[in-house]
Amino acid sequence: CAGKGKKKPQLAYEERPVELLYATGADYMDRRLWNQAVDYFGEVERQHPYSEWARRSILMQAFAHYESNNYAEAIADADRFIQLYPGNPAAAYAHYLKAVCYFEQIVDVGRDQAATGQALDNLKDVVQRYPNTEYATDARLKIDMVNDQLAGKEMTIGRYYLRQGDTLAAINRFKGVVDRYQTTSHTPEALYRLVEAYLTLGLVEEAKKNGAVLGYNYPGDPWYADAYKLLTSSGLKPAVEPTARGKRGLFHMPFRHDKEQTIKPPSEAKPVEAKTEAAPPPAAAPAETPKTDAPAEKPKKRRSIFHPFG
């Protein structure tokens, strides 16, 4: 386990009861001391590999690594959980956490979108394997954001070509966005840019068609207001009136790591059907008592969502 140098030998030799190890780990999790938590959960797994605790501690380690932004380790832990316990209900959470790890590594559109591609695959995996769980709802939300990001990259390249005078290249890029990413927030701008490009080429008929589609689908969008102005200034009469004023600048949405919204690891209960509020169910007693050890008495008075016996 990823313990610090000097602490590790002390842990390795002192064989300690599994509940104590696990409780200390969970305690550190509450105090958000992720590295120490990982040490203790690692020890649980190493000293008592066959206990039901070991299974839970892999999940806890994954979540601790995720919280400390150590994405590579978190993904490795999640993979290990999936390999060892594919049938277990908590495997859904492992898939979900893996997808969120990739999602949070997405960088700005100017740079390589490798992480975006991986995030998309993993999110789709979660939605396809566990369709009606709370994880799937969050995953569908994140899939839209990922598609928005991929469309954003196409748009930046399209705008670059447009401004360089490579109108043909720009048209194909914007057409790509309209074809593949209609549901994203970039479609209105893509249609607007197509109007600009076709007018630059002199294909007035084509520009009018694209303007009409933009007007029909997004009458209230500022992009249509601009397109309307552009088309009327070049002597065309678009059918639909724009309902929005012109330039309404959209605030820039920096990419916030809203870690609070990420769902916490489940207690023993099965992943619950999609419910409106995302709060996890209160930590109920585990469905069946773990085979080897009797359930410990309540170790802590403070309620914590990480403790199985709360």
């Binding site: 700005d108 990001q149 080429l201 949405m253």
Partner: peptide, 18 residues
Amino acid sequence: GKVIAYNTRETPTRGREM
């Protein structure tokens, strides 16, 4: 062809700046 002043506004995107 018509000479167009390309609109400078851009739809915002996400992703962590370096």
